[in-house]
Design a protein around this nucleic acid. Structure first.
Lengths: 230, 230
DNA sequence: TATTTCTTATGATGTAGATCAGTTTTTTTC
DNA sequence: GAAAAAAACTGATCTACATCATAAGAAATA
């Protein structure tokens, strides 16, 4: 029996369907209140534990949301443009960013005042409903990833991630990956050395080709099989 | 640096704050449309992959929501009374239960028609907002658990679960636990044998006492320390 | 009350993957 | 464009934990 949702990947790509639900006036309200910021590659957008006065919308670029641990971090989501970041921090009794976020490449971010965001949720139930559906889709994705962390081993998890980045972000078999091996480690729950070793296995077996930051997936069939077998 | 949300536990306990947001008419609508069912201990409430026509509300008892894997399962949430189950399945393009759910003890469940539920979300934005906050709180909990799975080892994770069940479900240091060692295994991502061994360690070190299904936490300070150190 | 089935328990063995330690290559910085 | 820093790589070692095998108690079933 195959589980549909058993992929290690955690790339959100909801293409901001929720904003379509806002009226023109509501959209104008956001436009007139938003703050636009640009970040260079590697810069920190939000820091775990800091006061969360805004909802973060990634307009351009690529970012990660991660949990900073004592020794190692855990990457929670890879965020392509068109998505909100840190939305889960919006609940009763919390007013801080629970996670840090930083950019992989030069990026552009829009900050939406959190009180305005809440107000929109409370006055436009279609918008709220769209947000609920988005949150649920990513929860299901997280549970699938959870399953992989506990049941698949390294090769399966890394194959997952490579396929996922290829499909969900780049839409191509060959792409330039700004994530380091250590990022892949924090994404798959492996050590950096293990990521390197498994990547080498994949290369030796002719499943992928790498040249610096460029990666090309050669034998996708086999990667899918490895992902499935675990 | 200590993370506030780094506990392996996954007991939801939101005390249905969302239903408070419904009007009397809306509440009456639910009342007149709901189906009440009783389940005996160990019975299956929903089966992974089946058509999801209803939202499940646990009125009495205790249940688990779990992902059925090829060989092993993964328990996603332990649900005490007063909570909804399987809410994350509500998103675009999905109409099946993605997870199975079953009871630990004799339980009572109310089924709310999913279209009615959606309608209420769309007509009452306060309700929708309350649901969003609930979903977010449990997402944050899930991420914390995620962190534990990858960064803590067995003793820390099991200490987490024992403390969590004690505090969040029973509100007492001694309680009768209907979960088997194999359930604790599926909850902590360990093998059943390992759960048994670690429990024995805890017993030998005088941290807990067990008698059949009865568990008493003796040295909570120490359990907390083990949970923290990992 | 006998019999099957599930759960708890314990020891022996195996291994996936972390950690450590060191080298080379690439990238950043001044 | 040289120096420093970070990232990629490789091998040796170690260990946390799973798996296997087997047995005893508890609970369900008939």
């Amino acid at each position: 029996m195959k589980n549909i949702y058993s992929n290690t990947c955690t790339v959100l790509n909801n293409k901001n369907l929720y904003f379509d639900e806002l009226t023109e006036e509501e959209m104008a309200l956001i436009e007139s209140n938003k703050i636009t910021l640009t970040y260079k590659k590697g810069e920190i957008i939000s820091k775990q534990g800091s006061f969360a006065s805004h909802i973060i919308y990634l307009k351009k670029g690529l970012a990660k949301v991660y949990l900073e641990g004592k020794s190692k971090n855990l990457i929670l989501t890879i965020t392509p443009p068109g998505n909100l970041m840190g939305l889960p921090c919006l609940y009763d009794g919390n007013n801080v960013f629970l996670y840090s976020a930083s950019t992989y490449i030069d990026s552009e971010v829009e900050l939406i005042d959190i009180d305005l965001f809440k107000q929109l949720l409370l006055q436009n139930s279609k918008f709220a409903f769209a947000i609920i559906k988005t949150l649920n889709a990513s929860t299901v994705q997280t549970f699938g990833r959870f399953y992989c962390f506990t049941h698949k081993q390294m090769h399966g998890r890394l194959a997952d991630i490579l396929l996922c980045l290829s499909q969900r972000i780049y839409g191509s078999d060959s792409f330039n990956l700004p994530l380091s091996r250590s990022d892949l480690a924090e994404l798959t729950g492996m050590s950096t050395e293990s990521v390197i070793r498994v990547m080498k296995d994949f290369k030796d077996d002719g499943l992928i080709k790498t040249d610096g930051k460029d990666i090309e997936l050669i034998d996708i069939e086999m990667l899918l099989k490895i992902s499935e077998v675990g």
